[in-house]
Design a protein around this nucleic acid. Sequence first.
DNA 1: GTCTATAATTAGATAGAC
DNA 2: GTCTATCTAATTATAGAC
Lengths: 215, 215
Amino acid sequence: MARRELSETTRAALVEAAIAEFAAHGFDGASTRSIAARAGVHQPQINYHFESKADLWGAALDHLFAELSAELTGAALSADGDLEVLRNSIRTVVRHAAKRPELNRMMVKESSVVSERLTWLTEQHVRSLFDIHSALWNRLRVKGQVADLDVLTAFYVLIGGSTLLYSNSPEARLLSGDDPMDPTRIEAHADAMVALLTRSTPVAATRHHTTRTTT
Amino acid sequence: MARRELSETTRAALVEAAIAEFAAHGFDGASTRSIAARAGVHQPQINYHFESKADLWGAALDHLFAELSAELTGAALSADGDLEVLRNSIRTVVRHAAKRPELNRMMVKESSVVSERLTWLTEQHVRSLFDIHSALWNRLRVKGQVADLDVLTAFYVLIGGSTLLYSNSPEARLLSGDDPMDPTRIEAHADAMVALLTRSTPVAATRHHTTRTTT
DNA sequence: GTCTATAATTAGATAGAC
DNA sequence: GTCTATCTAATTATAGAC
């Protein structure tokens, strides 16, 4: 393997190890030694490939949000009309939370206090998703096709209701003995979140447009 | 002030300071020095009043869960019938999440990986709440009075949908400029969570029993 | 690009005076 | 019960050989 390829391999291994360690123990709880050990390299490699521990943390989130954005874009492109876009997006959020619980684990650990890391995270990655959600939700709300919730509350009900079961899956397993990551359960959860937040038929007025219904 | 009273004052101040620091920075991120400083005492006082940092962390959660249990008990006692108990409980969960976001912040930081702290927390405090929820939810589900969700998923949709807006309120404020803790918004959120998870009229069969409806 | 060795901080906990 | 002073261990980051 050429030197540049080796470098990129090491860098990618460090990012993946950082995702696992930061998600499990938080920024302060994860040590650069444990991250390096998980990646199979020595600790000073982190400061060779990244400016600092905080820089590696940022690279981990860049990677996780790139994955999520790719899936959400796919969900939007394959949909026809606002309502179907929202439904596909909700399903994508649920499925992705189960596939990559690390994303929500990292998020929730940083979102409880204003900090440099939180402002970076919010402006760099969350803002654009929230803006897209807001425009979509407001258009559907005036047509009575979604639950009667303001955009901010709707955003957090959607994310919280869709992701906590997976970000807290170790707790859920202790409580119930069941596996939250079971594919059948995940699909039922996705269906339920769609049913809770959207209405197949508008409640307030306007039926002139033909509205796609799922059943 | 007598010596014993002084001691109890110091202990209570340490618990309250620990709640603030652990909720904001997690177990590893919060230092015993910062907790002592917030409580207005010197750092070694922690090891006089508590066996260890972990012991203080446990005392903080004991305090937070005692508060929550008191409110949930009140909500259940003032209700008539399973459906009203559930509705009151949902509203209590939303209001309490807004009043004490520290509880959910501490919880979510410990629930992403199996650890000694998580197993203690689950068995000591979460288990009983989950068992009560399970019995209640299953009785209502067979009568078609709640959303069609298994108990485990329902628990996490309820908690996640009710609490994330408040545990992540710094992020929510950055995103929207609005105040998630506004009382009117909180009540609207509570109403919405009740509407999402319960049905005023049963969908599947059985109407022989008179069912209390709100409005 | 990766290694060993180590510098510079900071952490939780304890000893002993008052 | 509370204080000052300090011990031991662990942390992030860097220096310099290969």
